[in-house]
Write a protein that binds this DNA or RNA. Structure first.
Lengths: 341, 341
DNA sequence: CGTTAGCACTTGGAAGATGAGAGTGCTAAC
DNA sequence: GTTAGCACTCTCATCTTCCAAGTGCTAACG
């Protein structure tokens, strides 16, 4: 990355900010004014020409102004942007707003997502807490009728999952006892990652004639372990895609992309840094080539556990949104950690 | 509704069908051909003029052909349409496709919705089984930690709900006993509609110092009763809105409307007849003024329990879709009834 | 050498003009 | 009641013209 002269940096920053605000390419004369006529428009033109050369700006056509390229946004985000924090008052409002949902991760994320999508006018995406390192803390069997029962699994990290299981023959108290014994011996304290179908199969082999009742129950537990590892997604403000004229061409494609959850999960799971900003082509999926994504992880206890963020157009107010998302992720993490104790 | 001459009916039907197929207004000459030149174009023109007068047709402008008005669609659906049933083979395919999910209502509806949205290219909406007349069959308290427990409620009609409750003080076995006693006395066999906050309050008043532990637990049960009554919605193929050019103007509004669940719930709950077709302005919400909705109830056991259907443009293949939706609702009802036994 | 003034040049989009095509409504005749 | 014939209407696509915005280049300046 070649070092830009101070003036060129200033010009780039102003173009990015003006373009983000108005959506209109910026001309040299307008820019001259916003810079307080300290230099002539011709000078600015020369600099702008250089910035185009370097790939930071693009000109839609000869007689339009300049707009930032994706590289231009990137340079801005990395070097020029001055972050704009949320007001204290607004921070408090968000915090109290979310407080009420601290008990239920899904509802909390749903609410946080709806706040975020309104705050940003973008599609908000969040992933529920998941943890493949979690240990099995507790398993309960709740009989519902003679041949159905509910299996409940609680993992460290506070994740709770349950499901209904139907068996071929009756679930007697004796069966329940065997079940609890098996749990005690092989499951409790074990990592959810260790419980898989092969494991269940070897276990079941030694059960003799109880196989037919126990097998569905144990498979249920394995399913639950699996779902502790896996991530649920929440979407909010999907209609906001249509808000942004620059996305409306791909609106259908993008919409469709969002509804295929797998790639989004991949996107969130691949995230390494606490806060990731991906601009346009930097995104791993071609459907997002005209979009930017900003995602922040949130931490429950001391482990990264899920993410929240947005998908929007590349022309987006990075300086305002990045701190907002960071803040929101912080609040979520705190609230979820609180209830863990 | 004035009786139309046979020829006018035929003309109206052909215009509706052609317009549905092509999206282009139909002219008198084209129509003359499809009618086998049995009458002259001038005669058709006269009839068409009458049909415009009666409000069944509209002409976008003087020199375009005629298109059906909403009233025209209505007349067609009520009197002219010959239904086009699904092929036997396709019926079987759908049936086996859904069979696997018979155990889990939510998954079943999700799958059915995705089939429906692909079949129709519209937004598919379905509501999960709900029943305000259901009785409380069973309530279980699953202790998770000293101050948290899971409350599980099973209602007749097979609906199962659960949630996590946190209390202020410890949930001892003695507390659990009291809880089960209260359930036995006041809740089991009672209708879920009877359990509301006032009821809980009167109950709680007589508990003395146990109020602080019991109150959250009982409120939890009340919440669950409430959720048995209420309806969950499933949406599929929302991006299909963008498929239909006639909707693209209101796309944003419509999208937004879909994300506000309340009106949709109202829509489905208000439905009286087993199958409802609402065309354009017939819909109760102004956001749907350019849309048609087709919804069919499904019956679990012998009670109406939920609905499935579509939201699409008014220009839609009623003759094909109405039977499809009816069929799908039938399959869903059967599958859910099966597992109830 | 960087900066500036001046000016010819490019470009897209808005506004108007034109013509073709489709389809109608009306009249008069059958 | 039905039909042929024809003038009329309206939209859409194409073309032209024109304007404003903004550039790139050249030559001059400190």
């Amino acid at each position: 990355m070649p070092a830009l002269s101070e003036r060129k940096q200033k010009i780039l920053a102003l173009i990015v900010e003006s373009y983000i605000a108005t959506g209109e390419p910026v001309g040299s004369k307008t820019l001259q004014n916003t810079m307080g006529n300290s230099v002539s428009s011709a000078t600015i033109r020369n600099d702008m020409a250089d910035l185009v050369e370097l790939g930071y700006l693009i000109q839609p056509h000869t007689s339009a102004g300049r707009a930032p390229s994706q590289a231009g946004y990137r340079y801005y985000v990395d070097n020029l942007m001055t972050k704009y924090e949320l007001g204290h008052e607004e921070q408090e409002r968000i915090k109290t707003w979310l407080q009420g949902y601290s008990g239920e991760p899904d509802q909390l994320l749903e609410k946080a997502g709806s706040i975020l999508s309104e705050l940003t006018n973008c599609v908000a995406v969040s992933s529920s807490p998941s943890d493949s390192e979690a240990l099995i803390k507790r398993v309960e069997l709740v009989p519902l009728s003679s041949k159905t029962a509910m299996v409940v699994l609680l993992a460290t990290s506070g994740i709770l999952k349950s499901m209904v299981v139907r068996t071929e023959s009756e679930i007697t108290t004796q069966i329940a006892e065997v079940f609890y014994n098996i749990m005690q011996t092989y499951f409790l304290g074990n990592s959810v990652s260790n419980i898989d179908i092969p494991f269940i199969q070897t276990l079941v082999a030694s059960l003799g004639d109880k196989v037919f009742v126990m097998s569905p129950l144990l498979c249920g537990v394995a399913d639950l372990c699996n779902s502790v590892k896996s991530t649920d997604l929440h979407f909010n403000g999907q209609s906001n895609i249509l808000n942004h004229s620059e996305l409306s061409l791909d609106a259908f494609q993008l919409m469709d992309f969002l509804h295929r959850e797998a790639p989004i999960k991949a996107l969130l799971t691949a995230q390494r840094k606490p806060l990731t900003v991906s601009i346009g082509e930097e995104n791993a999926f071609k459907e997002l080539r005209n979009s930017s994504t900003i995602f922040s992880k949130y931490t429950v206890g001391d482990r990264d556990s899920g993410s929240i963020g947005i998908i929007g157009p590349t022309r987006i107010d990075y300086a305002r949104l990045i701190p907002s998302i960071k803040y929101l992720a912080g609040v979520i993490g705190n609230l979820l950690t609180e209830t863990l104790e």
